[in-house]
Structures are given as structure tokens and as C-alpha cells.
């Protein structure tokens, strides 16, 4: 087994194990830590896939941004919310069955489809090329994304203001 394969199995184990740990953890703060582990595994998979820029982006945005946002969200929603509420058994069975079906269908699709075998792995400095693509071919999507971020910024500020002023805009 090559080193790449070992790394792949460790990283995908981290990713999936972290995800399952979120599912079974009772305390939410630990669930956030498991989410961190899972996202780290995904970043490692990106490095295996020759996408270093995306891996760094993943760490910066998800770990530096989103998980911290979730911790703040947890802290702002009171001590009673640090523990997951009890779920009904019926719901658990329904969720399990539907997810299992999804998993089987997805894995079957992955297995049965004939994927293009042309595995010409990426090489060289992909970062510069991504930058070029963002500002030429995908410039419209890029601008839309920046407008989206601006809208989010203003919208969240408005939300917070609403909460502070007691619901009056």
C-alpha cells in the first residue's frame, strides 16, 4: 500500500468519523470539535487532490470562520442548549432508513457509472491559474459572490439591530 493510500484512508476516516461523532455526541460543544476534525480531514483530502489553495481556504473559512461562528451561536443561545434534546425513536428509525437508502443509491451510482478514466493529475502552480480563471471565465459568478457577501453583511447587521431594538425596524 502506498503512502498516498494510507493518507487517503486516514483522512477519509477522520472525515467520516468526525461526522458520525457529531451524530452521536450529546454535548454540542464537543460536536463542534468533531466538526473541526471532519473539516480538517476534508482539507487533507483536498491536498491529496492537488488543490492546496482550496485546502488552505477550507481551513481559513471553515475552521477560522464557521466553527467559531457556531461556538458564538452556542454561547448566545443559552446554557440549556448545550445539550441535544432527546429524540423520538420513530424519528431515529425514519432518519436511519432514509439515509441508508440515500447512501445505497449514491454508492450504486458511483459504482455503476462509467467515469472518464483519463486521470491526468493536475500539476504545477494551480493557484495562479485559479486566480486567472476567477477574473476571466468566472468573473460574473465572482461578482455575484461578492454581492452575496455584502447582502449577508448588511442583513446580519440588520438582524442584530432588530434583536437589540426589540423587533422594531
Amino acid at each position: 500500500m502506498s503512502a498516498e493510500k494510507v493518507a487517503f484512508f486516514i483522512l477519509s476516516g477522520l472525515t467520516l468519523g468526525g461526522g458520525l461523532a457529531i451524530l452521536f455526541s450529546v454535548r454540542l460543544m464537543r460536536a463542534v470539535v468533531y466538526l473541526l476534525v471532519s473539516l480538517f480531514g476534508v482539507a487533507g483530502l483536498y491536498i491529496l487532490l492537488n488543490a492546496e489553495f482550496l485546502a488552505a481556504l477550507q481551513v481559513l473559512i471553515y475552521i477560522g470562520g464557521i466553527t467559531i461562528l457556531m461556538v458564538f451561536g452556542l454561547m448566545l443561545t443559552g446554557p440549556g442548549q448545550f445539550v441535544n434534546p432527546a429524540e423520538s425513536r420513530l424519528k431515529a428509525v425514519a432518519a436511519g432508513v432514509s439515509s441508508l437508502t440515500t447512501a445505497i443509491v449514491l454508492l450504486l451510482i458511483v459504482k455503476k457509472t462509467k467515469w472518464p478514466a483519463g486521470t491526468q493529475a493536475l500539476a504545477g502552480d494551480t493557484t495562479a491559474e485559479i486566480g486567472r480563471l476567477l477574473l476571466t471565465d468566472h468573473v460574473f459568478a465572482f461578482e455575484i459572490a461578492s454581492v452575496l457577501l455584502l447582502v449577508v453583511l448588511v442583513g446580519v447587521a440588520l438582524f442584530v439591530r432588530l434583536a437589540r431594538d426589540g423587533g422594531k425596524p
Partner: peptide
């Protein structure tokens, strides 16, 4: 990117 781990 990795420095953000410190915040967490």
C-alpha cells in the same frame, strides 16, 4: 489559514 486554529 493555520493561524486561525489558534483562535479556536
Amino acid at each position: 489559514a493555520v493561524l486561525t486554529l489558534e483562535v479556536f
